[in-house]
Amino acid sequence: MQIFVKTLTGKTITLEVEPSDTIENVKAKIQDKEGIPPDQQRLIFAGKQLEDGRTLSDYNIQKESTSHLVLR
């Protein structure tokens, strides 16, 4: 499924993911596309910070959901 990640600069990154993917996996995909190390990434969805060990389905992130990327 596709999800979108919006950066603070207003850029939207499109990612191909599975509901069973962990947040860690998603951060690795963002690193592949954008070159941002996962330890600098914070992903926010529905006002919550997403934890590495959880999956997209844990957070009820469905296709075409948009989460926000904040850099630390």
Rank of each mutant, 00 (worst) to 15 (best):
K33A: 12
R54T: 06
L69R: 02
A28T: 10
L69I: 13
Q41C: 06
D39S: 12
L69M: 07
T14G: 05
D21L: 05
I13C: 02
V17F: 03
E24H: 11
F45R: 03
D52T: 05
K29D: 02
K63Q: 13
S57G: 10
I3L: 10
P38T: 14
K11H: 12
A28Y: 12
R42S: 12
I30P: 00
G35R: 05
L15A: 01
V5H: 01
K63D: 12
D21G: 02
D58F: 14
Y59D: 01
R42Q: 14
R72G: 12
R72I: 15
R42D: 11
T7V: 09
G35C: 05
V17A: 05
V70W: 12
I44G: 03
S20N: 13
S57Q: 12
K33L: 13
N60A: 07
T66H: 14
T55K: 11
K63T: 11
F45W: 10
K27Y: 03
G53R: 09
K63L: 11
V26E: 00
E51L: 09
I36D: 02
I23Y: 01
K29C: 03
L56I: 09
I36S: 04
Q41D: 01
E51N: 06
G35P: 02
D32P: 02
G53A: 10
I30S: 00
Q2A: 08
Q62H: 13
P19D: 07
S20I: 06
I13H: 03
P38C: 09
H68Y: 15
R42A: 10
P38K: 14
P19Q: 07
E16A: 08
T66S: 10
K29I: 06
G10Y: 04
R54W: 10
T55Y: 06
F4S: 07
T66C: 10
S65W: 09
I3Q: 00
S67D: 10
I30R: 00
P37N: 07
A28E: 09
E24I: 10
V70Q: 10
K63V: 09
D58G: 03
I61K: 01
Q62N: 14
T12C: 12
E34A: 11
T7Y: 12
E16Y: 12
Q49I: 15
Q31K: 09
E34K: 04
P37D: 07
L8V: 12
Q40A: 08
L8K: 11
V70R: 06
L71P: 07
I13R: 01
S67G: 15
T7S: 06
N25D: 12
Q41H: 04
V5S: 00
Q41N: 03
K6S: 09
P37V: 06
I3D: 00
I36E: 02
H68Q: 11
N60D: 10
S65M: 10
L15Y: 02
I23M: 03
L43F: 03
P38D: 04
V70K: 06
H68W: 15
I3H: 03
A46Y: 09
S67Q: 10
L50E: 01
Q2H: 12
S20E: 10
I36W: 13
D21N: 06
E34H: 07
D52G: 06
Q2E: 09
V17N: 00
L56D: 01
S20W: 13
E64I: 12
E18I: 12
T12F: 12
D58T: 04
R42K: 12
A46H: 14
Q40I: 10
R54H: 11
T12N: 05
Q49K: 10
I3F: 05
V17L: 05
M1A: 03
N25R: 14
E34Q: 07
G47L: 03
T12Y: 11
T9S: 13
E64A: 10
H68D: 07
R72H: 14
M1H: 05
T9R: 10
D21H: 05
Q40N: 09
I36T: 07
N60V: 04
L69H: 02
E51V: 08
K27V: 02
K29Y: 07
A46T: 05
V17S: 02
D39R: 10
K63P: 15
D58L: 03
V26P: 00
I30N: 00
K11C: 08
Q49T: 14
L43A: 00
V26A: 02
K27P: 00
Q40T: 08
I61Q: 01
I44D: 06
V26G: 00
S57E: 11
G35Y: 03
K33V: 12
Q40V: 10
A28R: 15
T55A: 06
E16Q: 12
S67H: 12
Q2C: 09
T55I: 06
S57R: 12
R54N: 10
D21S: 08
E16F: 13
E16R: 09
S65Y: 08
Q62K: 11
D58Q: 07
Q62T: 15
L43K: 00
Q49M: 13
A46M: 15
I3G: 00
I3E: 01
E64Q: 10
H68C: 13
Q41I: 11
T66E: 10
A46P: 01
A46V: 06
D58R: 02
Q31R: 12
E24F: 14
N60R: 06
Q49H: 10
T14A: 09
L50T: 03
R42I: 15
I13D: 00
